[in-house]
Design a protein around this nucleic acid. Structure first.
Lengths: 166, 166
DNA sequence: CCAATTATGGACTAATCAGTCCAAAAAATT
DNA sequence: AATTTTTTGGACTGATTAGTCCATAATTGG
């Protein structure tokens, strides 16, 4: 998963994978069938893990859950590689419906988590607002990847949060 | 440019390029030197063209320039491929400073255009708000690529615009 | 109309790719 | 301990990659 996260699908070679896993080629193919299969499993794993973490972030910082979520999404672990799912959607979703499907489910889970953080009683009524927060956090990932100063990204989020929460 | 836009840098082969350009390999290399060089030129061309179009959109729809810009950015020409620059930032910026630089300049131009559309007199004072609009529009590109229903994306933008403009 | 320059097609190289295959080693079973 | 099953290393295939090179063809200049 980490290798795919770092390099994307196409740029990751079988040698990269077997070396990272400490597996021989035969073992790799007997265990996973093909490169795509392992990739999809890695992507699902990343998604499950990411959503679980996000919910935990929201639960822990109960008083300002939206802010904490924005922070977590906008500045994910994994260094400059951003969010693996956004990377993979960008690279593959137009050509690969399976990736697109995992991507949609992931994005919907993020939106749902936002909605519950905004209004735990009536999450459905704030769906579009949750979607706006979600898109905003995802958008800042591109800024960060391009090397925009972290301070400006923080200002953007602060400003957006001030307005969106009013 | 169109081929790189559609397939990304790594997934585009020399055969793809020479076929699309109607050029032989020798002519290609004598004209452009290497694949990277053509790619950077294509990226610069896309950026110039995109910013010019965006300014024109803002100028044409003078009364509701921000809305028109959001529409144009969120649903770019080129079918499901989204914005070439966001694609390339996602794929390459962490490993390629030249791409990151073009990306930063492009993103800053978008923000500047937003700022002038929001407040032509004092664009500097609405920089963070412009950045928020910008990030939001970029974020929705990922939703679209993942195949989210266009209606929901439209609702997201509408909601965000209503709140952000208040 | 001829000579010098430039452009072109396509064969070629060396590297890398995903995936296969089998003999040898390791593990499990009797 | 002997035999069967499973796992493993690594050589191998055929396809594809970016980039080179040169003999031929087209264009240009005189």
């Amino acid at each position: 998963m980490k290798v795919f996260w770092q390099k994307g699908f196409e740029a990751t070679s079988l040698d990269d994978l077997t070396k990272a896993m400490g597996l021989s080629r035969s073992s790799f193919y007997s265990a996973f069938g093909c490169k795509q299969s392992l990739f999809l499993q890695a992507l699902e794993h990343y998604s499950r893990n990411g959503i679980r973490n996000l919910r935990q972030v929201a639960d822990t910082a109960k008083d300002d859950a939206v802010d904490a979520m924005m922070q977590a999404l906008s500045d994910p672990k994994g260094g400059p590689q951003g969010c693996m799912l956004i990377n993979c959607i960008t690279e593959l979703a137009p050509h690969d419906e399976k990736v697109a499907q995992i991507g949609r489910r992931h994005l919907e889970s993020i939106e749902e988590t936002f909605a519950k953080a905004i209004d735990p009683q009536h999450p459905e009524s704030v769906r579009d607002k949750a979607s706006a927060y979600s898109s905003l956090a995802i958008g800042t990932l591109a800024l960060r990847k391009a090397g925009m100063p972290a301070e400006r990204i923080a200002n953007t989020l602060k400003q957006a949060k001030t307005i969106l929460s009013s």
